[in-house]
Structures are given as C-alpha cells and as structure tokens.
Amino acid sequence: MQGRMKNIMVLLLVAGICLCGQAFKLWSLKDQVFVQAQDTMIALEEAEVLHFEPVFQGKKIGLDEPLRNSQMDSLAMHTLRFYLSNFVFLKKGRVVFQEKSSYHLLDLEDKNTLELKFTGLGNQDFDHIQFKLGIDSLTHISGAMGGDLDPTKGMFWTWQSGYIHVKLEGFSEKCPTRNHAFQFHLGGYLAPFQSVQTVSLSVPKRKNLLLQLDLTPFFEQANWSEKHTIMSPSKDAVAMSKMLANSFSVHAE
C-alpha cells in the first residue's frame, strides 16, 4: 500500500512538471495572442481605408458590363486583377508612413480585396500617396512568397519567372480573336522590359478615400484589331502599364 501511494505521488509530481511546461508554453503564446488582439484594435480604430473602383467615361463599371466607346465599339471587361505594392504616405514631400510587406492583390471579382486598409498611420496627416502598379524587381528575385504573392494566386508565370502585374481581359468586337477576346497579362522585371510603374497621387483630404482607375483611355485605344494580346514581357507591355499607371486618381468618398 505504501509503495502504491509512493507511485501515485511520483506520477503526480511528473504530471505537475508536465503541466507547468504546458502552462509555460501557453503563457508564451499568450503574448502573441495579445499582440494580435492589439493590432486588431488599432485596425478597428485608426485604419486608413482606400476604396478601389474602376471607371469608364466618368461612371463606375463592373465586370461583364456592356460598354460602348466613342467609336461605338461594343466592349466588356471580364477580368481585372492587379498588384498594388510599396505604399508610402507623404506630407509635403516627407514620408510619414511606409507600409511593411506592402503587397496587395486587387481582384474585381472579390470585393474584400478592393478595400485597402492601412494601420499604423496614427493621426498623422498626409497629402500624397505613392505606390507601385506591379511588383518591384527585388521581390521578383527573392524566391517564393506567401499571402497575396503566393504562386497559387494565378499571378505568376510558370514558364518564365515573373509576377503578372496586371491581368486585364475582356471583349471588344474589333478584336479578330476567338470570341473577340482581348487578353493583357502585363509583367516583366528585367531590362529593357521592366513594366512595374510608380504612381504618385495627391490626396484631397483624409479619411475614406476613393482610388479610381479610369479605363477610358484603355477602352478608347484605336487599334483593337492589332493590339489584343500580351502574354509576355515586351515593349507593348511596358507601354500599356504606363498608360494604366497614369490613369489612377484619388478622390474623397
């Protein structure tokens, strides 16, 4: 009987030690949980929200919406997916906030991706926003990445390494292709076909900003019969990236 009690005591002691170990593990995890909770609180209180929408002839447009340009061509957009990266907020030319790991994949098909939230700005004022349309060259050569950069997002070429900065697909009756489809996959990080673009925009006032991409110049381009497909880094990819980068603007919502 005595021996058995001893056994139980020893077992209890071991159990106690194990419990202490587990408790310590949980305690160390607690910090992470707490930090995450804090981050969420900041996000709830002070996130600067940038809402994206594409426009055509001054009106907001959606996917598959029938459109007509000034030449009365019948047009539609089926896919709009693109990367915005390296967000920097400035006041009088000085950086007040630079987002870390700043990569955002916007997909017109997924509403959640069209609300860009920036935390950590605090109450700082800013009058300019700067970002890149696409992914910078350094990120390109740094190997596999997660999150919005994960290769499962369908925005990475498999036959030749490189992010697809912009996927813009749709229909124009003047395209001599199957189903009159146009397909623009804009990418390229090596000279002379680097197509990532820096966009710098002045901001009217803080809180609830609307980031617009005006697709009017894109849909008005006169040569649909010749330029309807871009699938690799090229001069045309660079030119179209420039045109799109110049079509962004920020407005108060």
Binding site: S142, G143, A144, T158, W159, Q160
Partner: peptide
C-alpha cells in the same frame, strides 16, 4: 535561364502541358 530562383523551378514542370499538365492551385 527562364526560371530565376530555385523556389520557382518546380512551377514550370507542374504547369507544362508536356510534363505534368497541372497547376499549383490544384496541386495545393
């Protein structure tokens, strides 16, 4: 030299129609 990093190398044979003819999304 189409592939610039060892991490990305496997993407090519997975997707190539004459090799594995698959996609990384579906493999995942």
């Amino acid at each position: 030299g189409a592939i610039n990093h060892l991490d990305f190398q496997a993407l090519a044979p997975i997707a190539h129609p004459a090799e594995m003819d698959h996609s990384i999304e579906k493999v995942v």
